[in-house]
């Protein structure tokens, strides 16, 4: 029996949208090294749509997979949808996570929220749910 679903392992082994987005206009970082997980999301928002997204993550397999899946779920999506993204949606898209790893998907949700917060601060627009 494997620790993770095939989906998790796929996103962990081949993370999508990994790296830094030089022209990001919304950046969110959550978690801390003490707990062993840090996630950083770089979003490029134009016309209220997430045109591009990249992430950097320090963390376990499920943290990397959750970040990767979250970027896929928001890429090309309008902010009205992005702001509604829940950790549950990330977990489901990964075909589930072990119970003690659910916090990784929460971190992904929080990283996106933090990026939207940053966008609000930069632009004065209201986008968060």
């Amino acid at each position: 029996m494997a620790l993770y679903s095939e989906k998790v392992m796929d996103h962990f082994r081949n993370p999508r949208n990994v790296g830094v987005l030089e022209d990001a206009n919304a950046v969110g970082e959550v978690g801390n090294a003490k707990c062993g997980d840090i996630m950083k999301m770089y979003l490029k928002i134009e016309d209220d749509v997430v045109q591009d997204v990249k992430f950097e993550t320090f963390g376990c397999g499920s943290a990397i997979a959750s970040s990767s899946m979250a970027t896929e779920l928001i890429k090309g999506k309008p902010l009205s949808e992005v702001s509604q993204l829940t950790n549950k949606a990330v977990t489901e898209a990964l075909d589930g996570l072990p119970a003690h790893k659910l916090h990784c998907s929460v971190l992904a949700e929080e990283a996106i929220q933090a990026a939207l917060q940053d966008y609000e601060t930069r632009t004065g627009k209201h986008v968060q749910a």
Partner: peptide, 12 residues
Amino acid sequence: VTYLRSFSPIWR
């Protein structure tokens, strides 16, 4: 180690 550091925010 090099690969994981390449997208680690701590390493950056």
